[in-house]
Design a protein around this nucleic acid. Structure first.
Length: 547
RNA sequence: GCGGGCGUAGCUCAGUGGUAGAGCGCUACCUUGCCAAGGUAGAAGUCGAGGGUUCAAGUCCCUUCGCCCGCUCCA
C-alpha cells in the first residue's frame, strides 16, 4: 500500500488536502491524473446508469430500463434529515466502557435497583447504586434481557425466577427471591443526565464493573453550518451525509414534470460529508467524498426482481471497468444484518491491500421498500404516492382503472472515491523483469492518459510527424482524456513514464514511418509492438476506447 | 477517542548536540537511437509546526498537526 500511495503522490493522482499547512485529517485532493481518472469513472457511471442504463438491456419486465438524472443540493431543509433518520441516529450521545472499549447509546441504558420503597426511586436516582445495567431502550426489554441471561444476577445469588409487573411506562418491578429472602427489584431507564452526573456509580452493561464508563459524549457524524447571518439553532443546517435523500425529496417533482412511467430510476451524483470518528486507509474513509446513487422505483410486486437485476448488473459493471479479478466479490447481507424495512442488501466489495484478507465496501445495493418515500410523506405531509394508469382492472373502454401506491425502491449506491482507489490498487502491477517494473494496468476507459505519440528520435522530420499525429488524435479524443506527446530523452524512459501513468497505447514515429507511412503501437501490458498505418491510428484508438 | 510506530528534497531514505546529505526522479545541453544507457550542468529543504533547554538543536524536552498499525466507530 505504501508503494501505491507513493506512486499516487509522485505521479499526481492523489494529494493530501492542504498539505503545505500540515494536511487535514480525512480530506484528500486529486491531482491532474487523479482528477481525470475520477471524471472517467463518473462519466462511465453516468453513461451506463442514466444515458444507456444497464448497457441497453431489458429489465425483468421485458422493457428497456429508463433512468433520469437530478442534481440536488448539499444543504437541504433540516427536516429532511429528521425524516431520513440521520438526525437522531447520528446525533445521539454515546457512552464508552473505558476498559472493554465498547460503546453504546446513552439513551439505551436501563438499570436494576434493589428497592424497598417504590415511590422514592420513581423520579430520582437512589442513593444506593444500581447493581446491574443492561443495554435496552425500554424497561420491558431490559427485563426480558435479564430473564434470558440469568447469570447477570448470579453474583447476588438470585436465580432466574421473577415475578414481573410493569408499574408504569417507565418502571417495572420484579420480585426475585433466593433461599432466604424476597427482594423487590426496580427496573427503569437511566436518563442521560443521570449518567452524566453518576457515570462512576453505574455499572458497565458489558462487565457490570463500576468506574469504567465515560460521560455521555456527542458524536456528530453530520457536519453543520448556518444559513443567513445569524448563528443560532434555528439557522442550523447540515451538509448531506448521502445524496440519496435529494432524490426522494424531489421524487414528486420528477414524476409531475417529466412524463416518467413506473418503473424508472433517478440518478444523483455529488459530494457528501460525514464527520467520521476515525478517517483511515487513504481515501477509503474520507470526511468529504463523492457518491453516485441511483434510486430505482417500481411496483412492490416487481421489487425483488429489480433488486436482483441491479445487484447483478452492478457487479458486472465494476468488472467491466477493470476489477475483473477475484479481489471483487458480491456479498449478500445476512437476515440479521438487514434494516427492518429491507428485503435484501448486497455489497460489492473489493479486497484492498489494507483490508486484505478482508474486503471493503465499494457499493451497496439495497432493497429499501417504501421506507424513504413513506418517511418523507409522513414528515412533510406531501402525498408521494404514484398513480399507475397501467395497473388495476380492465375497463370496458380498454383502459385500466389505475392503481395508487407508494413505489418500492432499489438503491445501488456507489462511492466514487472508493472506486478510484480500488481501480488504482487493482491496476498497480510490479514486474521486476521489465525495464519499468512498476506500472498501472488501467482499463482504457478509465485511464487518464488515453494514448501517447512519440518521435523515436528528435530529428529527421520525426518530431513534426509526431506533432501532426498528436494534434489529430487530440482533436478527436481529447474530450475522453489526455493525449500525450514527448520528444525528450530516450524512448525507453518515455515508455516507462507512460507505464507508470497507466497509458495503454504509445504510437511511435520512426525511420520507417517516413518511407512506408506506418507507426509502431506499443502495448502497455505486454511491451509488445505491432505496426499499423498512420492513417489507421484514429480508428485503432476509437476501437479500444469505446468511442 | 485509547495504545503503539513514524514525520529530513517530488519519491525512497542516511544523518554521533557543531557547515543540510545520498540514490532515484525533475530541468537544460551533449552523445546515443525501440524499452528508466552515459556525460556535463542546474533547480529543488524555515529537517511537519510551535515553544523550551543549550554558546550551539534535524538530533534533547514539552505541546500540537499529519500519516501508518491495533482497538473503537462506520448509510
Amino acid at each position: 500500500m505504501d508503494a501505491i500511495m507513493s506512486l499516487c503522490k509522485r505521479r499526481g493522482f492523489i494529494y493530501q488536502a492542504s498539505e503545505i499547512y500540515g494536511g487535514i485529517n480525512g480530506f484528500w485532493d486529486y491531482g491532474p491524473l487523479g482528477a481525470l481518472m475520477k471524471r472517467n469513472l463518473r462519466e462511465a457511471w453516468w453513461q451506463d446508469m442514466i444515458m444507456n442504463p444497464a448497457w441497453g438491456r431489458r429489465g425483468p419486465n421485458g422493457e428497456p430500463v429508463r433512468c433520469v438524472p437530478v442534481e440536488t443540493c448539499i444543504i437541504q431543509h433540516p427536516r429532511v434529515w429528521e425524516a431520513s433518520g440521520h438526525v437522531g441516529g447520528f446525533n445521539d450521545p454515546m457512552v464508552d466502557d473505558r476498559e472493554t472499549k465498547q460503546r453504546f447509546r446513552a439513551d439505551h441504558l436501563c438499570a436494576v435497583w434493589n428497592s424497598l420503597k417504590l415511590e422514592e426511586h420513581h423520579t430520582e436516582l437512589p442513593r444506593d447504586k444500581p447493581f446491574v445495567s443492561v443495554i435496552a431502550s425500554t424497561p420491558g426489554e431490559a427485563v426480558a434481557h435479564i430473564q434470558s441471561n440469568p447469570k447477570l444476577l448470579r453474583p447476588y445469588r438470585l436465580h432466574g425466577s421473577f415475578k414481573v409487573s410493569p408499574f408504569d411506562d417507565r418502571v417495572w418491578v420484579a420480585e426475585a427471591s433466593d433461599k432466604d429472602a424476597t427482594l423487590l427489584l426496580l427496573v427503569r431507564a437511566v436518563e442521560v443526565d443521570e449518567i452524566r452526573a453518576h457515570h462512576d456509580l453505574i455499572p458497565s452493561p458489558f462487565t457490570q464493573k463500576r468506574s469504567v464508563l465515560t460521560e455521555p459524549r456527542q458524536f456528530n457524524l453530520m457536519f453543520f453550518t448556518y444559513t443567513g447571518a445569524v448563528f443560532n439553532e434555528d439557522a442550523k443546517v447540515y451538509l448531506r451525509p448521502e445524496t440519496a435523500q435529494g432524490i426522494f425529496v424531489q421524487f414528486k417533482n420528477v414524476v409531475d414534470t417529466t412524463r416518467v412511467k413506473m418503473p424508472f430510476g433517478i440518478g444523483n451524483t455529488g459530494r457528501s460529508f460525514r464527520n467520521e470518528v476515525t478517517p483511515r486507509n487513504f481515501t477509503f474513509r474520507s470526511r468529504e467524498f463523492e457518491q453516485a446513487e441511483l434510486e430505482f422505483f417500481c411496483h412492490p410486486s416487481e421489487s425483488r426482481e429489480w433488486y436482483a437485476f441491479w445487484r447483478d448488473f452492478r457487479m458486472e459493471w465494476w468488472k467491466s471497468i477493470g476489477l475483473a479479478g477475484d479481489n471483487l466479490v458480491l456479498r449478500e447481507h445476512d437476515k440479521d444484518e438487514l434494516s427492518h424495512y429491507s428485503q435484501g442488501t448486497s455489497d460489492v466489495e473489493y479486497r484492498f491491500p489494507f483490508t486484505a484478507p478482508g474486503f471493503g465496501e465499494l457499493e451497496g445495493i439495497a432493497h429499501r421498500g417504501d421506507f424513504d418515500l413513506t418517511q418523507h410523506q409522513k414528515h412533510s405531509g406531501a402525498r408521494l404516492e404514484y398513480f399507475d394508469q397501467e395497473r388495476g382492472e380492465l375497463l370496458p373502454n380498454g383502459s385500466r382503472r389505475g392503481e395508487r401506491y407508494i413505489p418500492h425502491c432499489i438503491e445501488p449506491a456507489a462511492g466514487l472515491d472508493r472506486g478510484v482507489l480500488a481501480l488504482i490498487c487493482e491496476a498497480y502491477t510490479r514486474d521486476e523483469s521489465r525495464p519499468s517494473p512498476e506500472f498501472m494496468k488501467f482499463h482504457p476507459r478509465i485511464a487518464p492518459i488515453k494514448a501517447a505519440v512519440f518521435p523515436l528520435v528528435n530529428k529527421d522530420g520525426m518530431p513534426e510527424r509526431a506533432e501532426a499525429l498528436h494534434a489529430e488524435l487530440n482533436r478527436r479524443f481529447g474530450r475522453q482524456g489526455l493525449i500525450e506527446t514527448d520528444a525528450k530523452q530516450t524512448i525507453g524512459k518515455r515508455y516507462a513514464r507512460m507505464d507508470e501513468a497507466g497509458c495503454p497505447f504509445c504510437f511511435t514515429i520512426d525511420g520507417q514511418t517516413m518511407t512506408d507511412q506506418t507507426v509502431t503501437v506499443r502495448d502497455r501490458d505486454t511491451g509488445g509492438q505491432t505496426r499499423i498505418g498512420i492513417d489507421r491510428v484514429a480508428a485503432f484508438l476509437s476501437d479500444r476506447l469505446g468511442d
